[in-house]
Amino acid sequence: MLRHATSAVLAALLALASAMPLAADTAPQDVAFGEYGSIETPLSDTAGDPEKGAEIYADKGSGNCVACHAISDRSDAEFQGTIGPALDGAGDRWDEAQLRGIVADAKKTFPESMMPGFYKTSGFIRPGDAFTGDAGSEPLPPLLTAQQVEDVIAYLATLKE
């Protein structure tokens, strides 16, 4: 009898879970930027993970933030760049909404920035089609997913003076 009751409870939970909507990400074209480029609303329903964000920072295959930015205590990240500002104290300089806007599309905050928009699909100056030498056609996929942007924000927010 207990076995049948347990099966019934599991079936009910499974039915409830399948009826619930999946977590939704904000699509790049639906991102609402504030006047100075900040994005108040998280791009993902899942909170950012600072450890994953630290990995994305140094990963040449995804964020590759390390190519342009340096962080003093990241001696594990070889060949840190100096094109962009050092990110030491980024969590003190900018709040999460500002960081989200800068990572998603830095040109909304800093129009002269050379930093790529990591969460945009259109409005590029000269997109290329991988290594073909041909011009890319929009919309292009974003460089990072909504969750990866949130992970990077969570990591940058931990960088305090």
Score class of each variant (00 low, 15 high):
M20Q: 12
K120H: 01
T6G: 09
Y155M: 06
I125L: 09
D105M: 05
L156Q: 01
A8R: 08
E78D: 04
Y155F: 11
K52S: 12
H4G: 11
F79K: 15
P50F: 08
P111E: 02
A5V: 12
D105W: 01
Q98D: 14
D59S: 11
A106G: 07
I71Q: 02
A77D: 05
S44F: 02
V31K: 00
D129E: 10
T121R: 03
A90H: 10
T82V: 14
D25K: 06
P141M: 04
F79I: 15
F33P: 00
P111L: 07
V9Q: 02
Q148W: 05
M1H: 09
F33Y: 04
L144T: 03
R100Q: 05
Y155D: 00
Y57R: 08
S113V: 11
E40A: 12
A106Q: 08
P85G: 06
D45N: 10
Y119I: 03
P42M: 03
D25G: 08
S62C: 14
M114L: 14
V9N: 02
A146F: 04
M20G: 13
I56F: 00
A47N: 05
N64C: 11
P116Q: 04
T121S: 01
R93T: 14
K108L: 11
A77Y: 05
P111R: 08
R74A: 11
E161Y: 12
A24M: 09
D92K: 15
D30A: 00
P28G: 04
D25F: 04
S44T: 06
I56P: 00
D49T: 06
F131K: 15
E96Q: 10
M1W: 09
W94Q: 09
D49R: 07
G34H: 01
D151A: 03
A24D: 04
L22E: 13
P127M: 02
A24S: 11
R3D: 00
P85M: 11
L143D: 07
D30L: 02
I102P: 01
A54V: 15
T121P: 00
Q29F: 08
A47W: 04
T145E: 02
A12F: 09
E96V: 11
V152R: 03
A106W: 05
A47H: 02
K60Y: 15
A5D: 03
M114V: 15
D25V: 05
A67C: 14
Q148L: 12
L13H: 09
L43P: 06
S18T: 15
S113K: 04
P28Y: 03
H69N: 10
T158P: 07
N64P: 10
E55A: 12
E150R: 05
V9K: 06
F79W: 15
V152G: 02
D151P: 09
R126D: 11
R126L: 15
A15W: 14
D49W: 01
C65L: 06
T82H: 14
G81A: 07
F33A: 01
E55L: 15
T121M: 03
